[in-house]
Write a protein that binds this DNA or RNA. Sequence first.
DNA 1: ATGGCGAATGCAATTCGA
Length: 262
Amino acid sequence: MLVATWNVNSIRTRITHVINWLESNPVDVLCLQETKVIDSDFPKTLFEELGFYLYISGQKAYNGVALISRTPLEDVSMGFASILGETKGEKFDVQKRVITGVINQVRIINLYVPNGSEIGSEKYEFKLFWLELLKDYLTELRNKTSQELCVCGDFNIALEDKDIYDPQGKENHILSSPAERQALQNVLSVGLQDAFRKFTTEGNHFSWWDYRSAGFIKNRGWRIDHIYLTPRLYEQAFSCKIDIEPRKLEKPSDHTPVIVEF
DNA sequence: ATGGCGAATGCAATTCGA
């Protein structure tokens, strides 16, 4: 089975790139982030014409996640509240950042982790708290089902220095501060491993490049889009790659897809 | 240190992303 994750930075702007990519990259499930559109305006038709099933959770202008699947998914749900209950999850679900569904007894979880803006800001504190809630969400799913988890998305965190083009001084930078890394490590402690790092240990592999200052041309990138797997699935994984080709196109997303095969 | 680029909103200029 092939599962991919891609922050498209607006599905309406990127629709042609995504459709073309799916035609040459026959994945079973594609996890999209930053669709930036309300559900009624999501461009479904082109996907449906290719035979895909769509599960979407969007909002106006910001955020938004979607699962594009070749076969129907089971037990689809949106947001933290669907798993953690209204009192714990509800106020966080105003921002559409979480969607999950099951295929072949594997639970795909598609996440758009908050960016955090600046260290110490209100949004930074929100990001750290959101990650605590994510741990509860994953713990609950681990405890109440025997499903293996495939946790995909834009995590907005570079976990190691080698995930940054120039890590010097980046401990004071959003996406790589010690508190963010610790928060993600805490999430992973529920029993998740980085599929990409099973196959590639060296640095200089990135999934996001800034539009500004010719970030991609200069390969000034960050690896912030990840696929994490529970142990049995991790054992079964036989490839995990970053496809930088879509980042070379006209009017690209600033992120590029990551694909796992298991 | 700052700003740079791109998208959405809504129709100019601002907010947000990472």
